[in-house]
Design a protein around this nucleic acid. Structure first.
Lengths: 270, 270
DNA sequence: TTTTCTTTTTATCATTTTATTAATAACATA
DNA sequence: TATGTTATTAATAAAATGATAAAAAGAAAA
């Protein structure tokens, strides 16, 4: 019918195929300091995620991940970058594509497929003011063979949800996730959050991505806490130090005032 | 403006947002036997991918991955299942989402975002006849710090492409891939193939997915060959046997006729 | 029939890595 | 000055890994 690619494209009718909308959802993870900073209580580090309260339908007054529509003339990965720039003042943010969710009825408005991204940031680099409807939620995860329970709190509100996991194949560690309890999170965002936590848990073992969330100077105790929160288990001090010893450099700074032997501050070895 | 979610949805105008088309591309990997099966030459195992020759524009006469458009009323992951069913006669195929590619100009026709999937199958379960324009290509990969060269051949045709890799962040093992040589593959499919190989290379170490490509009975030498092809390096026999010893069961069957000590046949320990 | 060849399979030992326990160090407070 | 607390390191045991070599079993050649 056509004799060349040029000719074909000239006559191509793009309405031949069904069209849909795409959005992106961004899991922005960071590390927070515990609000209770008592005497003789370690400056506890917490793992947190940024959520936004919806002020319009659908899911009005529920919390969701920052996100938005992909523009027709915008590369897919430029959308999360644009939204991140809108939520923060930082430019060089660690960003990684997570998963694309595309169940037919995942959005009540219409058919929308959403590609989720995970961003890791050091909160200390943020200018203080967040967008008015955004808030950091500390993350607590309880996981066993069958379920993942996630508890989020920001000092005022609490969000809980539970996810059932069933092994997809005997040959993998892959699970099928299904939301079985959720009252305060919009869309399929519980799934996105859990996917991100799983990804991070997996990658913390063979990459250095965790340092994207750490401040410039930190103690090994703090770093170990972050590993422990994300992995959901306690680590032995000497083992942990062996593992990260070649990733960090000791500085001559010390963190005093803890009522005990002060710890040296370390930096990430670039 | 609206007093309830129902009311909002009733009046929702889905033409508010820009729409695009979505496709899926499926990397179907398997293991092939070497065509040269000489005396005293091990029955060599090769790693292969299924490609389809395009008979229409765009990219007429180029090779591409099996794929197609996502239907408006079809779950995202049902599309690759539908296409797999069309290409094979097998039902329970290992399928895993790989990555969503969404550069604005990745398709010359119009804006198309594509979610790629990786499928692993045991060729022995296929009925012999493939679709007429489909063909298995054996894969050879040469990788160093800066580049990945992939060489595909199906006995008749050869396809070569080269990809430059640059480290994205110092904190990860993540690379940015850029196609620098490619003459016979359509779209951004070189990127999809390389992403899949990297995923497989990574996952072979901590999952059992490789057994989805193995026949029911295999020798440890054959299994080791498959590991070696995918990892791109030689493994020591005793080390390999230690690693996989708890994943396989020895049967009382032997593979004789090799002019040397026969090897036992093993099965995957389900 | 015997020897040679090849590859499979197992054994052995050295080395490295990881796990566990315990000891020592340093600061803040009573 | 003694005590509590956490940081840091030392020391040892256990496990995993790496590397080499030896034994086993069949096919083919002498």
């Amino acid at each position: 019918m056509y004799n060349s690619e040029e000719e074909f494209l000239k006559h191509y009718d793009s309405s031949n195929f069904e069209k849909l909308s795409m959005t992106t959802d961004i899991l922005i993870f960071s590390i927070s300091d515990s609000p209770t900073n008592n005497y003789r209580k370690l400056n506890e580090k917490l793992f947190s995620v940024l959520l936004v309260k919806r002020d319009t339908y659908p899911f009005k007054d529920k919390w969701c991940l920052p996100g938005g529509f992909i523009k027709i003339d915008e590369d897919l990965e430029d959308a999360p970058k644009r939204i991140l720039a809108n939520e923060t003042n930082i430019h060089d943010i660690y960003l990684e594509q997570l998963y694309t969710f595309g169940a037919v009825n995942r959005d009540p408005r219409m058919r929308i497929v959403s590609t989720s991204y995970m961003a890791l940031i050091d909160k200390n680099r943020l200018s203080d003011k967040l967008n008015s409807n955004a808030s950091w939620f500390n993350i607590n995860v309880m996981e066993d063979e069958k379920e993942i329970s996630v508890y989020l709190e920001n000092g005022t509100e609490e969000i809980k949800f539970k996810i059932k996991k069933t092994l997809k194949e005997k040959t993998t560690d892959r699970y099928k996730f299904e939301v079985i309890e959720n009252d305060k999170l919009a869309f399929d965002h519980p799934l996105v959050i859990v996917s991100g936590i799983e990804r991070l848990k997996n990658k913390i073992g063979y990459t250095d991505i965790v340092f994207n969330m750490m401040p410039e100077y930190f103690t090994l105790g703090e770093l170990q806490q972050v590993y422990e929160i994300i992995l959901g288990k306690k680590l032995l001090d000497p083992a942990f130090r062996r593992i990260i010893s070649d990733k960090v450099v000791k500085t001559d700074k010390k963190q005093t005032g803890g009522g005990h032997r002060p710890s040296y501050l370390f930096k990430y070895k670039q």
